[in-house]
């Protein structure tokens, strides 16, 4: 029993040790999540258009003002609509999008559980 406890504590320690440092706002990640509205399927991080440059400047200013990632997304959605963010916000329109995959995951797991009935005596 002690051995198992020891192993579990090692696992726990290694995992926690790997997670002490927290991440700050990653500007490049943020840019990649915003659609360049004048381009064909490009994010503003990947685009050279004037629109992309302007939005990047605006976001840089907002980060300097100390706004959080959430506030910046909210600002952009209010101004340009949900089309601009690649991360669809969770609301009544996008409810199915966010939950249906998990629904399928649960149903699938349930089906496999039923199919593979335990037959330990066999």
């Amino acid at each position: 029993m002690n051995k198992i406890k020891f192993i579990i504590s090692i696992i726990f320690f290694l995992f926690v040790a790997s997670n002490i440092l927290a991440a700050s706002i990653n500007k490049n990640e943020l840019f990649k999540n915003i659609r360049c509205l004048v381009c064909q399927g490009q994010s503003i991080a990947d685009s050279n258009s004037d629109f992309a440059r302007t939005v990047k400047l605006v976001i840089n200013d907002q980060i300097k003002d100390g706004k959080t990632e959430k506030e910046i997304y909210k600002f952009l959605v209010e101004k340009y609509g949900e089309w601009i963010v690649y991360n669809p916000p969770l609301n009544k329109y996008n409810f199915i999008l966010w939950f249906f995959p998990y629904f399928i995951l649960i149903i699938g797991g349930f089906l496999i559980y039923i199919l593979s009935k335990k037959k330990d005596s066999a």
Partner: peptide, 13 residues
């Protein structure tokens, strides 16, 4: 209602 579904959605799910 126009929305975009991109990398953040797929990565999260």
């Amino acid at each position: 209602h126009k929305i975009s579904v991109g990398p953040p959605f797929y990565n999260t799910v």
